[in-house]
């Protein structure tokens, strides 16, 4: 500290110029800065998308028509080149969910959230800005990855490969990006409710993997409802080339998933406004 700094503190309260004001643009810029300034963002997202493209290419290349499907499903499983090339999305969705959790839980675990909510006392604009930024980043990156996985998968698949003009192929590829974006936002909404990294990731895993797995063990009437209405089960219809009668139709399924996400965000925001930080 030089003595100059002490004599004339450069903190001088500005009497001219405009006072800081919370704006939508500023909030979005702040959240974008927060997201991109962490290495974990790029590791998580990068790993997820690389796995998605790589696994898709690998599975498409090693698949032998007539043999067992990639998920061990027997002859009854629908295995087409479109689905094969995008089968890496099963792994990618986990990493995308982790990113959705970390974006919110990182604020709580580090204490940054206090500064954030001190800057924006109404709080909900922060929820909206975070969702918009994560949603935007995921939509762009996962859609690009879906097209990449599809294209590369068709190359490795060889003869009989699909093109984007194949019936439903474009919808499935675009839908994969939409679905993965939905998964990231679903995880984010859950984390606004639960706040901790561990609790949120556990909940997301139960919702995405455990519940669908045990739904088959439940009495038929319950299991069928659960399997149909769970957010990721319903949402995955958009990535399914040929949906069957036990599932929602592609766009209806996506709408159900969006409904879940909206509901969880509404609950999280309502709780957030009342809760002490």
């Amino acid at each position: 500290m030089s003595t100059d700094t002490i004599r004339t503190p450069p903190t001088g309260r500005t009497t001219t110029g405009s006072a800081p004001r919370v704006t939508a643009a500023g909030l979005l810029r702040g959240e974008w800065l927060k997201l991109r300034s962490l290495r974990s963002t790029w590791w998580t997202l990068g790993a997820g998308l690389l796995l998605m493209v790589g696994l898709g290419a690998l599975i498409s290349g090693t698949y032998t028509p007539g043999a067992q499907g990639p998920d061990g499903g027997g002859a009854g499983a629908v295995v087409d080149p479109v689905t094969l090339s995008l089968s890496g999305s099963g792994i990618a969705q986990l990493l995308v969910a982790v990113l959705g959790v970390l974006v919110v839980s990182g604020e709580y675990s580090s204490g940054t959230v206090r500064g954030t909510f001190a800057a924006v006392p109404r709080r909900w604009p922060v929820v909206a800005a975070k969702a918009a930024v994560l949603g935007g980043v995921l939509l762009v990156t996962t859609t690009i990855a879906a097209f990449a996985a599809f294209s590369l998968g068709q190359v490795t698949y060889g003869s009989g490969a699909a093109t984007l003009s194949t019936d439903g192929a474009l919808r499935v590829v675009v839908g994969t990006g939409l679905y993965l974006t939905g998964v990231g936002l679903l995880a984010m909404a859950i984390t606004w409710l639960l706040r901790s990294t561990a609790a949120s990731i556990a909940t997301v895993v139960v919702l995405m993997l455990v519940l669908p797995a045990i739904s088959g063990l439940l009495p038929d009437s319950w299991g069928d409802v659960l399997e149909k209405w769970l957010p990721t089960q319903a949402g995955s219809a958009i990535m399914t080339l040929v949906t069957d009668s036990t599932m929602f139709s592609p766009w209806a399924g996506l709408a159900v998933m969006v409904g879940w996400v909206a509901l969880l965000f509404a609950a999280g925001t309502a709780l957030l406004r009342r809760r002490d930080v």
Binding site: G30, E31, T112, A119
Partner: peptide, 20 residues
């Protein structure tokens, strides 16, 4: 109150943007 993975400058820049 700062994420350990962020630089000091980025922490302040994001807070400044958020608070306008």
């Amino acid at each position: 109150g700062v994420h350990p993975g962020r630089t000091a400058r980025n922490h302040l820049r994001s807070l400044a943007a958020t608070g306008g």
